[in-house]
Design a protein around this nucleic acid. Structure first.
Lengths: 124, 124
DNA sequence: ATTATTGTACTATAGAAACATAACATTAAT
DNA sequence: ATTAATGTTATGTTTCTATAGTACAATAAT
C-alpha cells in the first residue's frame, strides 16, 4: 500500500508524481509484486484529478513493464526484475552515481549531504 | 560559480531548474553576493535552450529580489540575503535522492551500493 | 443473461512551457 | 560617434499538461 499525495506546487506534473510514487513505492518495498493498485477511477477521486491523468500514469508504467493491467479486473504491480550482466554492473553504478552527484552539486549539495540523506532513509 | 545542468527527465520545467539551481547555489555559498551570472545568451547556448527560457528564469529571480540586472551590463547575484527554509532545502535533497535511489533500485542496486560508491569518490 | 466494475478510447478546451525569430534599449568599450 | 555586448520585448507556433465529457470493451459477480 502507498499513500498517494499530489503537490500542485512541486512544478512536477501530476501524472509524473503518481508515476514517481509508484516507482519509489516498489523500490522501497511499500509496494510488492502482484499487489493491486487503486482503480483508475478510485485514485482519480482520491487525488481529485481527472480520470485521464491517472490513466496516463498507469499506462506509462505498463509500457515500462512495471505495471500489469487487466481490463475489467484492475491494475497490478508487475514481476519485472531488471538483470544486468555482472561486467556492466559496476560501470552502471558509477554512471548513475556520477550523474547523481553532478546534479546534486548543481543544487549546492555536498557529497556528505547526499550520503547522510541516503543513510537516513536506509535506516528506516 | 555554478555548473548548471538541466535534466529533461526530471519533469520539472527548464526555467524552474535554472531558478532552483541559482537559489540553492546562493544558499549553499556556491554563488556569492555581487557575482555575475552567465549572460542570458551564453547560458542559453550552454544549456542548449531558448533565450526566452533563461530570460524567464532570470526575470523571475529579479522580481524576487534575488538577482539584480543591468541592461547592457549583465545579471548579478543581489545583496539581499536569501534564506531558504531548512524544510525546503531538505525536501529538495529528498526529492533528488528519491529520484536517484529509485533509478538505482530499478537497476538492482541497494542504497548501500550507492553510498559505498559515493564514499569512494568522496575520498579521492 | 444481466449488471456492475474495471480499463480503454476519443473529442474538445484551456493554459503552461518551450521554441524560433526578430527587433529594440541600455551600457561599456573603442 | 560607433560598435559590441547586454538585457528587454514581442509575435507566432508547437508540444505538454490537465480538464470535462462521453462512450466503448473486457471481466467478475449476480
Amino acid at each position: 500500500m502507498v499513500q498517494f499525495i499530489l503537490d500542485p506546487k512541486a512544478g512536477v506534473p501530476f501524472y509524473r508524481q503518481i508515476i514517481d510514487q509508484i516507482k519509489f513505492g516498489i523500490a522501497s518495498g511499500s509496494l510488492t509484486a502482484g499487489e493491486q493498485l487503486p482503480t483508475v477511477r478510485a485514485l482519480a477521486v482520491e487525488l481529485k484529478v481527472n480520470l485521464n491523468t491517472v490513466t496516463k500514469a498507469y499506462k506509462e508504467l505498463e509500457i515500462q513493464n512495471i505495471l500489469e493491467t487487466q481490463q475489467g479486473t484492475g491494475t497490478f504491480i508487475g514481476k519485472t526484475v531488471i538483470k544486468i550482466p555482472e561486467k556492466e554492473r559496476s560501470k552502471k553504478l558509477q554512471d548513475i552515481c556520477n550523474e547523481f552527484s553532478t546534479i546534486a552539486f548543481s543544487y549546492g549539495f555536498s557529497a556528505d549531504d547526499i550520503i547522510n540523506e541516503l543513510q537516513k532513509k536506509n535506516r528506516k
